[in-house]
């Protein structure tokens, strides 16, 4: 009995050592980013490594923000992210409602097609979509980056919402129907309030995706004043290839809103992520 307890203790020690070790490994890059952002440029590439900056250069942050139109890009990125969230929430939930609570011919077939599109390699869509937007004269506007969100917001979000809606009992809706409420009213007054958690998950994903999107802005935004942080940072890096301290300061600032968001909504984000990846 005692040896078994001992075994268990040893096992736990090993377990926690391993996990702690890897936690540190996972945190080091992030630490390095912040540490570099506070160094003098001359200290960045120095061998042996300086873990902590000798005298923290807070000025780097001011210089970085001045070196490229950070706040404009920040605003553009936020603007696009918000529009994407709004568009996706509205259209994906509407469609999901139709897929789950309304009966119409071809509904199930269309739903299978929708699921199938999740497995389509998207490289086949790039060129025609680009040509479509260019024929519409939408290149160098935000439309190509926003309109798709209002057109269903992607199969994945529809799927996620639909699965949640299905779990809500029909009786709740039938009562309202008998009272003569319109479907839109039932959708907006009954369904949406009941679905807050999943709507939140969809919002977070859309926000993350939009904030990180590089290919879309790269392809569609030509005028530097319209750029987002992702392409703006890339351009900044190209011009100041080696000014690592400033680049890391700008990077930290870009990451900061997401890090804050993560710590505030951590539970929702991880559980939403788990839900989305389970394939159920």
């Amino acid at each position: 009995m005692r040896s078994q307890k001992k075994m268990k203790l040893i096992r736990e020690i090993i377990l926690y050592t391993v996990l702690t070790l890897f936690s540190i490994i996972f945190l080091i890059p992030l630490f390095w980013m912040i540490s570099t952002s506070l160094k003098q440029e001359a200290q960045v590439m120095i061998v042996p490594i300086q873990w902590f900056p000798k005298s923290p250069q807070w000025r780097n942050y001011i210089d970085a923000v001045k070196a490229f139109p950070f706040f404009r890009y920040f605003w553009n990125t936020s603007f696009l992210a918000i529009l994407n969230v709004v568009g996706t929430l509205f259209s994906a939930s509407l469609v999901a409602y139709s897929f789950s609570k309304l009966r119409w011919k071809g509904r199930n077939q269309l739903f299978y097609i929708t699921i199938a599109t999740m497995f389509i390699p998207s490289q086949v869509l790039i060129i025609p979509t680009y040509l479509l937007f260019s024929k519409l004269g939408w290149v160098n506007t935000y439309l190509p980056l926003v309109v798709p969100a209002f057109c269903g917001g992607g199969a994945f979000n529809i799927f996620l919402l639909r699965q949640f809606f299905v779990s809500i009992p029909d009786e709740l809706l039938e009562a309202a129907r008998i009272d003569g409420a319109s479907e839109f009213r039932i959708y907006s007054q009954i369904m949406l309030p009941l679905s807050k958690p999943v709507l939140f998950t969809v919002s977070i994903f859309t926000l993350l995706f939009s904030w990180n999107d590089f290919f879309g802005p790269l392809l569609y935004l030509h005028d530097p004043t319209k750029w987002t942080l992702a392409v703006g940072l890339r351009s900044f890096q190209q011009q100041y290839t080696t000014t690592w301290s400033l680049l890391m300061a700008a990077s930290t600032l870009t990451a900061l809103p997401l890090i804050i968001m993560y710590f505030v909504f951590q539970r929702n984000i991880t559980s939403g992520f788990a839900l989305s990846g389970s394939g159920k």
Partner: peptide, 8 residues
């Protein structure tokens, strides 16, 4: 006129 950095 619109100036875009050499790299982009």
């Amino acid at each position: 006129a619109l100036g875009i950095s050499f790299w982009d």
